[in-house]
Design a protein around this nucleic acid. Structure first.
Lengths: 355, 355
DNA sequence: CAATGCCGTTGAAACGTTCCATCACAGGGA
DNA sequence: TCCCTGTGATGGAACGTTTCAACGGCATTG
């Protein structure tokens, strides 16, 4: 319990005024060497810890930034978070990590909370397509940077990766491998990333002069492994199966892959799979997963730098729209021509495996 | 910018005193229906958001609990975090998530920060074996619960899984599969979990009347995939290789597995691998990974409940030491007798595969 | 010697809440 | 008529900081 010790107690013990103690804490150069030493020893004697809420109340703003992501369990976001954290802690800011679970309602609650905390800025992957709660926050003077979501309007910073190009890369690759029936396993329609990746997939078809019917979409409610498993089971239960699946992220792809491997469906021979994000686990999957790589940490770093820059000088700040370009990483899960990975392996080539 | 609107502005607009506005916020029953309505509409007109630091300053404590983990990028911890978050948000608390990266120094910095924030309680997986920084926090009246770390002393709550039993389960299983040379890939010595899993492994040897030389230890600096990759390469470079590897967690195991698969080492025939934690990705690995399962979310939930209970009634609180029992999940990565998972597969059985 | 400038320190105001003792008022019972 | 009670509203104190104008003392300068 020890009713917590305040700056006043320290002042009494050191025989100085509270103002001086505060100066020792915040402007050590303003106070004489001897006094400073006295105050510091009083601080350590009493075990004084500055009360951040009081500091904040006076200062008007917290030394923290909020980070709202769709799902912390997704390694993509933890990597982004790592980038954010690096930059933020460099600048002396704490990071408050929130999970919206792709729910607009939870997003609103978290933003409310961050507003009450008077955070400096917020980095957010929006769940609510209207961006309305975010606007409200902005109107209150909080700098906001959209994460993994390009801004359509010019009055807000954003850091994103070109999802449309990513989707196009993935499907162009599958077409080049000769696939004629592709299913895209996508998240809920209000998740913009998925919508854009889908548009990119359609671009790929168009550019290859293929009919857009070639691509069918299966929508799942969440972007995690469990949803991937269910999608895989749905695919398995069908009478006519596609020859390739493009998943909106790696978690879904790993789920689908797991179902296929268990059911004895050969990947990629019977079914090719392409994921998105290239999380670390993609390379270690049952069949190493082809995926679209995004510069995860860099996204986080850039976003954090933007938000900090904006809070430093809100007036001359120019809103930026940073877009990174994704990159296709081809691995075994989508290679028609199978590499003889394991020396002992001598499997009769399935029909149609010649490219 | 809109210099933020305070409770006072609301009061003026609604034609009441600040006390009344505060009552509307905190004790709505105390204020008459009509007044309440007037105040509420003033609040929404002005877009008032309560200043949490002011509230906190007055109340003396934040509505938040801190969660310090070794590595957010480890799915084990994100699952634990999910459990914590569920319980905490139920109780109206925010969760401040910190990453110690297994570094005692970062741990200290984070605890310092949490102390400044006057959090209600802290859940922590300690990096610093001395627990000294944690003691300091306790002395200041913050409730602490050790996470994934049994407490040796009776004056602190802890929630853990019996690591020693887990280690024993893993190695007993490997011995039963006939392995004669086992390597344990372990994290740094100051990480208690790893030390205990190692002790359990030795228990298994003893109970089977085997010589303890049978188990060799490779120590790596971190418990992540990258470290696992390096460990795998070290193993690969050796002239005499073990027949089985037990990794201190799944991230390491996935790293080792990836190296082996790439190098054409057959798993489990040439090298069996057992991991620890049974993260979701373990089942989806190149060769589905045998692992020791821990009740991840439950650990988080229990710890959060304990810390909240302790902060509610610090005096009559009985410190508890909760220990869960782990469970071995056997998958293909350690099964001597290979199941014919893929119909096409007909691999000549390697010598000694008959159990 | 007076004026000036600098350094280190002080004391009080302010930040936005919550809490609490107090008060105004209306209605009911004696 | 007076007193009592209960309901709602009020005003100010308190929480622990930071900031800032003011001040005293000392050295320097004219």
């Amino acid at each position: 319990m020890r009713s917590s010790v305040s700056i006043r107690d320290v002042a009494v013990r050191a025989g100085v005024s509270v103002g001086t103690v505060s100066n020792v804490l915040n402007h050590p150069d303003r106070v004489a060497q001897a006094t400073r030493a006295r105050v510091l020893s009083a601080i350590s004697d009493l075990g004084f810890v500055r009360n951040e809420s009081a500091r904040q109340l006076r200062a008007g703003t917290a030394r923290a930034i909020g980070l709202v992501v769709l799902d912390v369990a997704n390694p993509f976001f933890t990597d982004v978070a790592r980038g954010v954290e690096d930059v933020a802690s460099q600048a002396g800011h704490a990071v408050i990590l929130c999970n919206s679970d792709e729910s607009a309602q939870r997003e609103i609650r978290h933003l409310e909370l961050l507003a009450e905390q008077r955070v400096h800025g917020v980095l957010i992957t929006p769940s609510d397509p209207s961006l309305e709660p975010i606007r409200r926050l902005q109107r209150r003077g909080v700098s906001v940077v959209l994460l993994d979501h390009p801004s359509s309007e010019p009055d807000i910073c954003s850091v994103a990766v070109d999802n449309r190009t990513g989707g196009e890369l993935a499907v162009t690759h599958l077409l080049a491998e000769g696939h004629q029936a592709i299913v895209m396993v996508n998240g809920p329609a209000h998740i913009r990333q998925g919508r854009e990746r889908h548009l990119g997939a359609l671009d790929a078809l168009r550019k290859a002069n293929r009919d857009s019917d070639l691509l069918e979409v299966i929508e799942v409610p969440m972007l995690n492994v469990a949803a991937g498993l269910r999608a895989g089971e749905r695919l398995l239960a069908r009478t006519s199966r596609p020859t390739a699946v493009f998943c909106a992220n790696d978690m879904l792809a790993l789920g689908v892959l797991q179902v296929m491997v268990r059911a004895g469906v050969r990947v990629p021979d019977d079914l090719a799979i392409v994921g998105y994000d290239d999380i670390d686990f993609a390379a270690a999957a049952a069949v190493p997963l082809t995926s679209v790589r995004q510069p995860r940490q860099l996204i986080g770093r850039t976003a954090a730098e933007l938000v900090i820059a904006e809070t430093m000088s809100p007036d001359e700040h120019e809103h930026q729209r940073v877009v990174f370009t994704p990159e296709l990483v081809v691995r075994e899960s989508s290679r028609r021509r199978r590499r003889t990975r394991r020396p002992a392996r001598r499997v009769p080539a399935p029909a149609g495996s010649e490219v």
